[in-house]
Design a protein around this nucleic acid. Structure first.
Lengths: 405, 405
DNA sequence: CGGTTTAGTTTGCCGGATGAATTTATCCCG
DNA sequence: CGGGATAAATTCATCCGGCAAACTAAACCG
């Protein structure tokens, strides 16, 4: 008997799954709602029977994923609805980040509130990976232990890195701007020196730009679709479709910085990549600023009306616009969000980027592209990491509750 | 402003849906299997109870979507399994195509057999849209009426066009190489002069490259992921993920021909697009062949060892490699399939494309990219269109059967 | 204070998946 | 050639979860 091939978890519908799935639908409906909804509203909007929703909601309340608010003061006739909202401080996700200039942790609960946060600024270019990760673990431990002592259940931890991570569990392949290569990040963080959370709950690892884009998608409610550019020291990016980041086969999608827009510039086609033309170093150099300068120096020069700085940024914006047009032509996104460096430079790059998109994207006459600045706040990748951890609970609360028992 | 997205039918699980969904799972399992499977195998591979599968299969047989084959000669003990296979000649999809050099129709049934086919070669550049579509309707009518008279039920019709189609139902926005703009294709084909099929079953319209990629995905069993390049007169493309074409928001993804790889070449960045650098006209011109020449002339020149032809193709291959590297960096695909012109030139472009991919795609050291020629045969977009029509039956047979009643 | 309206709960029903038992059909061995 | 052994397919009782309708709860209105 030839054993059946390990088929993917095919889409068969079982009744047990049905309950679990609807539990997730109900929870998502409550968490994603812009304002508290009642059981009846939820039933109407999801197309479920009121009785069914009642059962689901009771389950969610018992699991402390949802709480009932005080009945709203309504002016209408009829029994007042009981507003439902995500529980606060009961379940949280942990987002960690190691980047070129800082490392830190942020903890967010189902309601989207930041329960704890700690960031240390430091220049980590070329720093030893093991040392940095030990430092991160030491930084995370007190934050997380304190919350746990307060009764917060942690849904998971996610580490954002400015590099290429193999799957969400695998090693970090390469992080050029940190100078790291083939680092077993999860092993280092789960080691004996690590706090209990991290060894009990092995962190998942993700690309900084992808996780920042997730935070951005969350900040814009309503399942937006856009291409996200994260200009840090390097240039990362991500594709968001209907509110979900598009991971590609290995989670290596959205490497916008490596798009080549000028294939015949130097001896190597890579000399014409977006990062080579519009990365922070390239802009500073073109603006005549020292290599050790920061973005602030460039912004100062722009404010002062420095012509070289303006030309440098204009040139970068042109490359950025062409690269983003390439993205739009390939994945058909309708909006472009500029984060990181380019978010700060937004006013200086918007027009050029928008013009290139209008000119080069074939569908722009019928569906004009929007260019907007990121609005996810500071350290969006930490937020995105925390949200990614929480999403495990949101997509299948029943499954997660079983693991908690 | 396009109408707001029809809010996705929230994925609540209902019991009625459960049956329908599992019916689809069973049908897909039978159709996609490389060789006939039995009810028991199906139950094992999908993780359903044998009793459940029996019920589903009986339903499918009654609906004439599946047929039982004669019990196989087995050498084992036990009751011999009844092999199940997709029914032949009972349900079929119609794929139509209008392209620069030809127009035609192909009809394919659930078993993947071509039931009928008719192609007319002609140069349609600049031809009047209404005239061409009337001609297509006239060409399709006898083919389709004959099949219907023979008892074949038609699942739907899909028209492939070398241009930008708004949604699957909307107008053709632009087809540069045909010289068409804003043509109400569906209306023209559903008009009074059209055969009964087309007015009863308004055709869906798709991009030629996307549909060709669908055929290619079908030809490679097992849900492959790849970027497809369709070099016709223009250069189209598509992204295939896990066997499904990735449509993007409007179905406008994969416009690989419009990727700019040389942003500073001419006065307009568009002068550095892949199509401008590696389109058929550009290659012929660079090879010193007359503009009226066909690809055959270029192939002859290559066979004769003509240096200009070789240089022209090498230059095109370089641009193609860079453009495909951009695609891979953005969507993280592991394979590149060259179709159309580039399929015929495969031997002459493979090495350069593979080299550029290895050099420029950031993840190539850990996941080398494959470059392979298309194997979907001639006129793949017609095949893809027929398959697209059939997929309506495959994904939700219960729903389709209800419409048939 | 009774009628109206809306929210939420209780209850009986029904469809569909399930596993165990049963039937069917073949091979194998004495 | 006949009786296990074995595997496929079907039958049947059970269970689970969503559903509609009836019912209760809590407000407003005149």
């Amino acid at each position: 008997m030839p054993t059946p091939e390990p088929r993917d978890p095919s889409r068969v519908a079982r009744q047990a799954q049905m309950r679990d799935q609807n539990l997730g639908v109900a929870l998502r409906g409550i968490v994603d709602a812009p304002e508290p909804v009642s059981r009846a509203q939820l039933a109407a909007s999801e197309g479920l029977a009121r009785a069914t929703v009642s059962g689901l909601v009771d389950h969610l309340i018992e699991a402390r994923l949802v709480r009932e608010l005080d009945p709203a003061q309504t002016q209408r006739a009829g029994r007042p609805a009981v507003p439902l909202a995500p529980a606060r401080g009961t379940v949280a996700g942990v987002g960690m980040e190691v980047n070129v200039d800082y490392l830190g942790v942020r903890v967010i609960d189902l309601a989207g509130d930041v329960l704890a946060e700690h960031v240390e600024l430091d220049d980590l270019r070329g720093a030893d990976a093991a040392t940095v990760l030990d430092r991160l673990a030491a930084l995370v431990a007190p934050v997380v232990d304190g919350l746990r002592a307060g009764g917060v259940r942690l849904a998971g931890t996610t580490l954002a890195l400015p590099g290429l991570v193999d799957r969400v569990t695998g090693p970090l392949r390469v992080a050029p701007n940190l100078g790291w290569r083939d680092v077993d990040v999860v092993g280092a963080l789960s080691g004996p020196a690590a706090p209990t959370v991290l060894s009990a709950l092995p962190p998942r690892v993700g690309n900084e730009a992808n996780l920042a884009a997730r935070a951005e998608a969350h900040a814009r409610r309503g399942s937006p679709s856009f291409a996200y550019v994260s200009g840090e020291v390097g240039i990362g990016g991500a594709i968001v479709l209907d509110g979900d980041i598009f991971p590609g086969r290995h989670g290596w999608s959205g490497e916008i910085g490596h798009i080549v827009v000028d294939a015949f510039r130097g001896p190597h086609p890579a000399d014409g990549s977006l990062e080579a033309l519009a990365g922070q170093d390239a802009m500073l150099r073109a603006a005549g600023l020292p290599a050790t300068a920061r973005l602030d120096a460039l912004l100062d020069a722009l404010r002062a009306g420095d012509a070289r700085a303006e030309a440098a940024v204009a040139q970068a914006a042109r490359a950025l616009g062409v690269a983003l047009a390439n993205v739009a032509n390939v994945v058909d996104v309708g909006e472009v969000v500029l984060g990181g460096t380019f978010g700060q430079l937004f006013g200086h790059v918007h027009d050029e980027v928008a013009a290139r998109l209008q000119e080069l994207v074939i569908f722009s006459p019928w569906s004009p592209l929007l260019v907007s600045p990121a609005r996810a706040g500071q350290y969006p990748a930490m937020t995105g990491g925390a949200l990614a951890a929480l999403s495990r609970v949101l997509t299948d609360p029943a499954e997660w509750l079983r693991t908690q028992a």
